[in-house]
């Protein structure tokens, strides 16, 4: 009942992608970019890299969709916790 076909994506390409994204991230830090833009860019790049690792290295793309549900289940809870506690500093 396990995934019979072990499709292996081109790992070296994914590795290249990760390497390039990391270089971009580190370069962005040393460039003169307005603060908010930099933070947003870095977060997006990190999320992109994380997705690459999850989809290709952890084979989420080739697994049944319900396994992705298990993988994603904790994310909304973490977001709820952090956003709610950040409200503490909003309107005092």
């Amino acid at each position: 009942m396990d995934a019979a076909d072990h499709k292996h994506p081109n790992y070296v390409a994914v590795w290249g992608g990760l390497f390039v994204l990391t270089v971009i991230e580190v370069a962005a830090v040393y460039m003169r970019i307005p603060r908010h833009l930099l933070v947003l860019a870095l977060l997006l790049l990190a999320a992109w890299k994380a997705l690459l690792v999850a989809l290709y290295f952890m084979h989420l793309r080739f697994e049944p969709k319900r396994l992705a549900l298990v993988a994603l289940a904790p994310l909304p809870l973490g977001i709820i916790l952090v956003v709610a506690v950040l409200q503490e500093f909003a309107k005092r």
């Binding site: 809870l77 709820i80 709610a84 409200q87 503490e88 909003a90 309107k91 005092r92």
Partner: peptide
Amino acid sequence: GFMVWGHHMFVSGMNPTL
């Protein structure tokens, strides 16, 4: 159950809008 924890903290100094 994951979205109600603040009711333990109504008077704890938590932000009233929360």
